[in-house]
Amino acid sequence: MAFASSGTEPAQRCREIKIVLLGDSGVGKSSIAQRYVTDTFRPHGESTIGASFMSKMIVNNGSPCKCQIWDTAGQEKYHSLAPMYYRGAAAAILVYDMTKKSSFEKLQKWVDELKERGPEGIVLCVAANKCDLEEGREVEVAEGAEFAQKSGADFFETSAKNDENVGRIFTTLVTNVQRKSEAARPAGEARLDAAPPKRTSCCG
C-alpha cells in the first residue's frame, strides 16, 4: 500500500503556492521576502509601492513547489488594496516588529479580516521580526506565541537581518499547505486541476 501510494503522489504534490505577507509598515515584510528569495539584506530599504511579487522554487519533502510570494505595502493608504493580494492565497505570513507593540496589536485586525473576507482555510503564520534587536523588545515571546495559537497560526521569532528562522517560516507553511491539500483530497477522487488523461502525448 505504502509503496504504491508514494509512487503516484509526486505529480499531485508539485504546484504553485501563493503566499502573502501582511503587517504594519516598516516591520520587515519586504526584508523577509528578500532574505528568503535572494538571501540578501538591505537596511532601511524603500517603502513598497502597492505590492511587489517574487517567486522561488523549492523542494519540500521530496516534492517540488513554487512559492509565489506577494509582498504588500504596509502604508495605511494601501490597506484597501490588500484583498486584491490575499485573494486566492494558500498561506499568509503576518509580520510584526517585536520592538514595536502597536505593530503586534494590529495583527488581530488582519486575522479578523482574513477570517471574514480571506480565502477559506488559509494557512497562517505569525513572524515576530527583528529578533536581533533583543534590547528593544516590546513584545514577549509568550504573548506572540499565545496570539498565534489563538489564531491557529504557527509562530516564529525571525530576523531577516541575521537570517534567523526565515527559511523555516516558508517550509512550515508549504508543509502545512501540502498536508492540508492532501487531507482535503481523498484517494481516488478526481483532481480539480484538470489533469490530462494518462498516456497522452503532446505531439499526437
Binding site: 509503496f3 509512487g7 508539485c14 490530462p196 498516456r199 503532446c202
Partner: peptide, 24 residues
C-alpha cells in the same frame, strides 16, 4: 518487486508531470 513497480510508475508519472508542467 515493489520497487520495480514503483520505478515504472515513476516514469509514467514523470511523463505526466512534464506534460502538466508544459500545460501549466
Amino acid at each position: 518487486a515493489r520497487k520495480r513497480k514503483l520505478d515504472s510508475g515513476k516514469k509514467e508519472d514523470e511523463r505526466q508531470f512534464k506534460f502538466e508542467q508544459a500545460c501549466r
